[in-house]
Write a protein that binds this DNA or RNA. Structure first.
Lengths: 235, 235
DNA sequence: AAGTGGTCTAGACCACGGA
DNA sequence: CCGTGGTCTAGACCACTTC
């Protein structure tokens, strides 16, 4: 008997195999149910999985069509830096560089939705892989959204790990870019001036309240971000 | 009456709102069904959506637990470069630089799974935004996997768009990195020597057969990759 | 008006895996 | 063993949307 996963895989094969090219109208659920000898609900379950994966578009009355791809989506997993390093057998070390409460600069205030004189917590820290600087973590934490951070020293635990463990978040935005290292970044990361760096800027919200904004700066010469990349629509 | 989407949102709120913290054991489906006055199937539908989104982990007998986050996942949409430029009101231009069949270098052969003397199609092209170079597309296409490419000139249509339209793919891998521009890259992108560039390397497969490998090189000073970032678990 | 997907119910059986 | 999730069926009604 065909389960909804079997049906899903068969339909997936018809799509990726070219039997049902982009734009093609897929048979109605009732017809497929008859073909596979099951209920329409079971076909519906399989089809919804394909729709969730973005492989087909469904509209009542109009039916189901194979999507014409406009872009590629890929899932990016950004691990905790400690796990990333130890996971490939490296030696990890954490170092707190600076921790202070201050009025953030204009661009950070905007990101965190703070008023002109609001203070926030600034934590600058370094993550080492095998003794060499691997990531500079330049973070601002909203004191109002995360009051607990004011009593945490961040001497033993990095803000990244602490926040991930202690503070739920509901939304995040990432910006990836390549840049020249600034003088301070070069000094802390032990790079030559103007060496390229890979920058991940992330802002995190908890139901529309900004929680934290961080700049993660990596030496370009020894950092790569790799996607997980399951087949689209895999269950 | 509570639909499975309502139930999903209520449970989502309990998780992100802190009522059910990470590690918490969630009530059994049967209990929730009673609470919401619906069938267990309906609760199951909502729970599966949460599990798909990675917010809970479910095991038979053991029950359902709120996940302890180890990492952050984010969905990256890599648009067709033309759409990316025109989408923000820019002027787009495409230029074919070189097209030839040749034996690829060692690293590309490995990526495409080719034997030592197999030939492949090499296409080098440029994408301009408002008259300035925006992306260098350095692509190798497997002649065996995509025979149709051998009769396509790529003078009017970029390989990226042509492939996305003509060739289905089942899996892709991306590597993002920051680097110094090589001499040729600097020349083509009209950059100073050693300027930082943002590189996206992508290999694409169709059911385990490599289709194409591409290096997309962007001037670091005018390129950023931004994530879409829906709330986790949104339906 | 009619076709198509969206969803619910009630009941059932199975599969896994902790105790 | 037996509680929990995984899934199916048969039938039903509804909600869109195109004709």
């Amino acid at each position: 008997m065909a389960s909804y996963k079997d049906i899903h895989n068969i339909l997936l094969e018809r799509i990726t195999g070219g039997e049902w090219p982009p734009g093609r109208l897929v048979p109605a659920e009732a017809d497929l149910a008859e073909e596979f000898g099951c209920t329409r609900v079971t076909v519906n379950r399989a089809m919804q999985a394909l729709a969730d994966a973005g492989l087909v578009e469904r509209r009542r009355k109009a039916g189901t069509r194979v999507v014409r791809r406009q872009s590629r989506d890929t899932v990016l997993t950004i691990p905790i830096v400690r796990d990333e390093i130890t996971g490939r057998g490296g030696r990890y070390r954490y170092l707190l560089v600076e921790r202070r409460e201050a009025v953030p600069p204009q661009n950070i205030r905007a990101e965190l939705g703070l008023a002109a004189r609001d203070r926030a917590l600034h934590v600058l820290s370094l993550h080492f892989a095998d003794g060499r600087p691997y990531q500079l973590e330049d973070r601002w934490i909203s004191a109002t959204a995360v009051p607990g951070a004011r009593t945490e020293s961040f001497e033993a635990v990095s803000p990244n790990e602490w926040l991930l463990r202690e503070v739920p978040y509901s939304r995040a935005e990432h910006i990836f870019s390549a840049a020249r290292a600034t003088a301070e970044e070069a000094r802390l990361l032990e790079l030559d001036a103007d060496e390229p760096v890979f920058v991940i800027a992330r802002t995190t919200w908890l139901t529309n309240d900004p929680v934290t904004h961080v700049r993660l700066v990596h030496p370009g010469s020894r950092f790569r971000l790799v996607t997980r990349d399951q087949p689209p629509g895999a269950l």
